[in-house]
């Protein structure tokens, strides 16, 4: 891909390197669920809904979190890769969501109860995993599940000495960019709860870049956290 990534300090969609795309949040979009949220960031939009806390099938065991990650067939088009249910990438993400949210959900308040998290990607324009994590946090809050803290996520990348946040699809698949460095942090303490990066064969990530890119991603998470909190306060006051 030969597209320009940074042009006079602006990115392809006219953003600055440290600027997020526009975030839109809707709560309670799925009526049949205990809690649901739609998280849109730019053209990426992810729907998450929760069933539970409900009684476990195996009564003697303590409760678990289950995650089901689906991608709508129409979420990406053209030459873009088709995701399917149960491929390696979504399996990995499901397992990660499970362990990640065990750290924030206060399972001891709901003993012997399961929480089912369903994620549906409606449109894919980069940073899907991050949008999914944010959507899950929002839907858990909407369902009234007791949480220790927000879990907010943001992706970041690195291009010619400049860290970028919240990558779009074309940025994250470009060989010139070190991408997608996905970080999820706790909203208040900013401790890293989830981290995932894999090389796509372009430029190599060095420890010095990790330091910059992590700081940038955490900065992005802070912004996302602020927006999410504001939206939730608005939703609750109405």
């Amino acid at each position: 891909m030969t597209e320009e990534i940074l042009f006079y300090g602006f990115r392809q969609d006219g953003r600055r390197p440290g600027e997020l795309r526009q975030i839109k949040i809707k709560l309670g979009v799925v009526d049949n669920s205990s809690g649901s949220a739609l998280f849109q960031i730019g053209h990426t939009s992810v729907l998450a809904f929760i069933h539970g806390p409900k009684q476990t099938k195996h009564e003697k065991e303590s409760g678990h979190i289950h995650c089901y990650f689906n991608t709508a067939y129409f979420s990406s088009s053209g030459e873009r890769r088709k995701f399917s249910k149960g491929d390696k990438k979504s399996n990995e993400f499901e397992a990660n969501v499970r362990t990640m949210f065990e750290s924030v959900v206060l399972m001891e308040n709901n003993p012997h109860s399961d929480i089912d998290i369903h994620v549906l990607v409606l449109a894919d324009d980069g940073s899907v995993e991050c949008a999914a994590i944010n959507a899950i946090t929002l839907s858990l809050i909407h369902a009234g599940v007791p949480l220790k803290d927000f879990l907010v996520s943001c992706s970041s990348g690195f291009y010619s000495g400049m860290p970028l946040i919240d990558l779009t699809y074309s940025e994250s698949t470009s060989f010139q960019v070190i991408s997608e460095y996905r970080v999820a942090v706790l909203g208040k303490s900013l401790q890293i709860a989830y981290l995932n990066y894999d090389d796509i064969g372009g430029h190599k990530l060095t420890p010095e870049v990790v330091r910059e890119i992590t700081a940038m991603a955490i900065e992005g998470c802070k912004q996302v956290h602020f927006i999410m909190k504001q939206e939730l306060q608005n939703a609750c006051s109405n």
Binding site: N96, T99, Y181, Y194, Y197, D198, D199, K204, L205, T206
Partner: peptide
Amino acid sequence: DILTLQKT
């Protein structure tokens, strides 16, 4: 060079 980084 860091090739994968994964915290679970």
